[in-house]
C-alpha cells in the first residue's frame, strides 16, 4: 500500500498528464461520431451568448455581400412570381409547399467554420423556436447542413463540410441518386458517391437533394458536377460537386421543418419489425 502511494506521489505529474490527455482524447473520439458530443460544443448558453455579441459586431463587415445576395434572391423570387401562372412544370412547388408539408424558419448564423475537417455552424434559433434535431438547413443558393444539437436559444448545424455528414442527393436530369460526403480538402467541393455507372453523367449537370430521407424534400439545389471518375470497384461513379453556396460566407439561413416527419418515421419503424 505504502509503495502504491509512493509511486503515485512520485509520478503525479505524469499521471495527471495521462488523466487530462485521456479526457481530451475521449472527447475527441466522441466528437468524431455523429450526435454523440455531449457538452463541449458551441450551442450552449455561454458560448452561444458570446458568439451572439461577436456576431452583432461582425455583421457590419459583410453588409455589402449580404445585400447582393438578398437582391439576387429578390430577383429570383420576383421572376418566379411572374412565371407562376404560366409555369406548367411546377413539380417542385407542388410536392413540397402546396400541401404545406414543410415549415420554413429564418435564422442568423452566429458562427461558421469551414477550415477544419469537421465543421459546424451555430445559429440563433433553438428549442424556443420549436427547432429539433435533424431539421434541414439551407440558404437561397443551396443546402448548408442538418441541425445536430439544440439548446434553448441556439442550435448547432452539422455542415455539409463535415466528414460525418451524409446527405442523399441525385442528378437533377435523371433520377440516379447517391450519398453526398466531404473529403475534408476544399470548402468549395463535396463528393457524391455511389452513383451507378448506368447514369449518364456530364460535367456541368446540376445536383439536387434526393428526397429519400425525411430531412430535405426533393430538388433543393446543391451544386454542379465539376469532374467525375469511376470508383475502384468500377460500378459506381465518384463525382466532384462544386457547391452553389459559398460556404465561407453564410449570414442568413432557412430551416426546414418536415411536418410529416413523425408520420414517415412511424411508418419506417413499423416496416422494420
Amino acid at each position: 500500500m505504502q509503495q502504491i502511494f509512493n509511486f503515485v506521489i512520485r509520478n503525479k505529474t505524469f499521471l495527471l498528464f495521462l488523466l487530462l490527455f485521456g479526457i481530451s482524447m475521449a472527447l475527441t473520439i466522441q466528437s468524431h461520431s455523429y450526435h454523440r458530443s455531449q457538452f463541449i460544443h458551441s450551442a450552449n448558453g455561454i458560448t452561444g451568448g458570446v458568439y451572439g455579441t461577436l456576431n452583432s459586431v461582425g455583421q457590419y463587415f459583410d453588409l455589402k455581400d449580404k445585400n447582393q445576395i438578398l437582391a439576387e434572391e429578390n430577383k429570383r423570387l420576383r421572376e418566379r412570381l411572374f412565371n407562376l401562372s404560366s409555369d406548367s412544370d411546377s413539380s417542385y412547388v407542388d410536392t413540397t409547399y402546396s400541401r404545406e408539408a414543410y415549415r420554413v424558419i429564418k435564422a442568423e448564423v452566429f458562427k461558421n467554420s469551414y477550415s477544419l475537417t469537421n465543421n459546424y455552424l451555430t445559429i440563433n434559433k433553438g428549442k424556443n423556436d420549436s427547432l429539433k434535431q435533424d431539421f434541414g438547413v439551407f440558404t437561397s443558393n443551396g443546402i448548408v447542413g442538418i441541425i445536430d444539437k439544440v439548446s434553448k436559444n441556439y442550435a448547432r448545424v452539422l455542415s455539409i463540410l463535415n466528414k460525418n455528414s451524409r446527405i442523399n442527393a441525385r442528378i437533377k436530369k435523371t433520377n440516379h441518386s447517391g450519398s453526398l460526403k466531404w473529403d475534408g480538402k476544399s470548402p468549395v467541393f463535396v463528393q457524391l458517391d455511389d452513383v451507378s455507372t448506368f447514369a449518364p453523367v456530364k460535367v456541368g449537370d446540376t445536383i439536387v437533394t434526393g428526397g429519400q430521407s425525411a430531412i430535405f424534400p426533393r430538388g433543393i439545389n446543391i451544386g454542379t458536377i465539376d469532374s467525375f471518375e469511376t470508383d475502384i470497384g468500377g460500378d459506381t461513379y465518384k463525382i466532384q460537386v462544386k457547391l452553389f453556396n459559398d460556404m465561407t460566407n453564410i449570414g442568413t439561413v432557412y430551416i426546414l421543418e418536415n411536418l410529416d416527419r413523425t408520420e414517415i418515421k412511424f411508418l419506417e419503424n413499423t416496416t422494420d419489425d
Binding site: I23, L27, Q30, N118
Partner: peptide, 8 residues
Amino acid sequence: DMFSDSGG
C-alpha cells in the same frame, strides 16, 4: 475547443 466545436 468549446468555441470551435472540435471535441477535445
